[in-house]
Amino acid sequence: MPGGGPEMDDYMETLKDEEDALWENVECNRHMLSRYINPAKLTPYLRQCKVIDEQDEDEVLNAPMLPSKINRAGRLLDILHTKGQRGYVVFLESLEFYYPELYKLVTGKEPTRRFSTIVVEEGHEGLTHFLMNEVIKLQQQMKAKDLQRCELLARLRQLEDEKKQMTLTRVELLTFQERYYKMKEERDSYNDELVKVKDDNYNLAMRYAQLSEEKNMAVMRSRDLQLEIDQLKHRLNKMEEECKLERNQSLKLKNDIENRPKKEQVLELERENEMLKTKNQELQSIIQAGKRSLPDSDKAILDILEHDRKEALEDRQELVNRIYNLQEEARQAEELRDKYLEEKEDLELKCSTLGKDCEMYKHRMNTVMLQLEEVERERDQAFHSRDEAQTQYSQCLIEKDKYRKQIRELEEKNDEMRIEMVRREACIVNLESKLRRLSKDSNNLDQSLPRNLPVTIISQDFGDASPRTNGQEADDSSTSEESPEDSKYFLPYHPPQRRMNLKGIQLQRAKS
């Protein structure tokens, strides 16, 4: 015994090295194993092979420090690593049964499904019991997946119906949107047309105001020219009257000059006056001389005659003075006559000038009245044309509004008919989907599995289990394997941990 101590140590070291070499393959693929292994699927088989106990299973599945599946799978690998070579062998058998691809990844061999460990530990009855539990578990999982698949199909059909409904609603909204954009385009076109009409109206108003201003300026210029013409006519008439007055005065002077006595007659009258003065002096001298030589009687007679002569001279002087006064009065009367005649001529000139001015103003008033009548006639014609244009424009607008209203009513009726057609199509689609759903539900009910399987069917299934373990590994792997896509769409199922009653199965096998 003492001599065998070193050999035992060498043997233990060799086993430990082999164990480390075995687990080295697992550690190399630890990331892939932790990512894809579900500990809840492996722990029943590991407990059946007595590699882990209930406490280890509870620690792996329910520990609060292991929230994710990767953490739980890593903890399970750590626990199996502590179990040595047996933990490695049982772990590979569980991978061979549940995850053939991972088994091939770790060992590089094809899975054979021999279950040597569980046969050694529990015997064939334990293997049968384990396989029966796994089959029931798989059936329950398949039923749950079928239910989930039916629910998802129903949800899918519902979503398809909602999608069709949303599509129809979208078509309806597109119809309304198209109608909205069309009405918006019509409104924009009408606004552009309105702005264009306003611009045209403004341009016409500006043109009309400009023409009116030009016409008023032309009328004012015409009036100024007419006033200048009238003033020139007035000056012409005044000059004609002055010329006529000057002509009359010149004719009067000419007549006075023609009626003036001649120079010879004046000289002859002056000679006669001198001769008479000479004779008068001679007679006076004779009379003076006679007075001195005459007697007293003759002197008395001469005195009487002288007195008579003096009286006659006085009378004559009075007559001469009277004649002079009369001549002066006649001259003054002639001057007054000439003055009055001049005033008369001036008044006649003024009267004729005023008459011509009156005629001029009368003509001017007639011209202004004619212009006013023409302006009123043009204004009435413009008003009439404007009223006709406004009436025609309003009539066109009324007809346009009428046609637009008819078009809008027809478009609304068309839209309502399209919407009604879309709604009826939606109703038809809904009815078809309901009919299809009812038909599929009836087919699913016919094809669904019963909840409680008979014992004979279970025994028959387990009677055929042994050949399947040898020759149909691919079928078992397809039913027991969970793909990543299934984990996305289906909830994980945790079967209840219970042991099955095998009395009925044993009785059935005894009868057979």
Rank of each mutant, 00 (worst) to 15 (best):
L105R: 01
E96Q: 08
L42D: 04
V119L: 02
L76Y: 04
G126N: 15
T82L: 09
D17A: 13
H81Y: 09
N133R: 00
P111Q: 08
A21C: 07
L92G: 01
Q141N: 12
R86W: 10
R47E: 07
M65F: 10
R114H: 15
D78H: 01
E27Y: 00
N133A: 05
N62K: 05
Y36K: 07
R47I: 06
A73T: 09
R113F: 02
H124Q: 12
E27Q: 05
Q139N: 14
G5F: 08
Q55V: 10
S116W: 06
G123D: 15
I37S: 01
I79S: 04
R47P: 07
T112G: 14
P39A: 04
I37T: 03
D53G: 09
V51Q: 08
K137Q: 10
D146M: 11
Y88V: 07
P64E: 04
T117L: 05
G108D: 00
P111T: 15
E19W: 15
V26A: 03
D146G: 12
M132W: 14
I118Q: 14
V26L: 03
G84F: 07
Q85N: 03
T112L: 14
E7F: 06
E96K: 11
K69Y: 03
M32T: 08
M12A: 10
P39H: 02
K143Q: 12
L22M: 10
D17C: 09
K109M: 00
Y88W: 03
D58T: 00
Q85E: 14
W23M: 02
H124T: 13
E134R: 14
F97Q: 01
K50M: 11
I70T: 06
A63T: 05
E134V: 13
Y88C: 07
D9V: 11
S68K: 05
L66H: 06
N71Y: 04
M8V: 14
E121V: 08
H31K: 04
F115H: 15
Y36A: 13
Q141K: 12
E18S: 12
E27W: 00
L92R: 06
N29L: 00
R72A: 02
I79E: 00
R47Q: 06
L66P: 04
A21V: 06
G4P: 08
L15C: 10
A144D: 12
P39F: 01
E125I: 07
K41A: 03
A40M: 07
K143E: 11
L77I: 08
S34Y: 02
E19A: 12
Y98Q: 06
D78G: 02
M32Q: 08
Y36D: 02
V135Y: 01
N38P: 02
G123M: 15
M8D: 12
K50H: 11
Y98L: 14
N25L: 02
E122H: 06
E125N: 07
H31A: 10
E27G: 01
D17K: 10
V119S: 12
L127E: 06
S68N: 03
G84E: 04
I70P: 04
P39Q: 02
M8H: 12
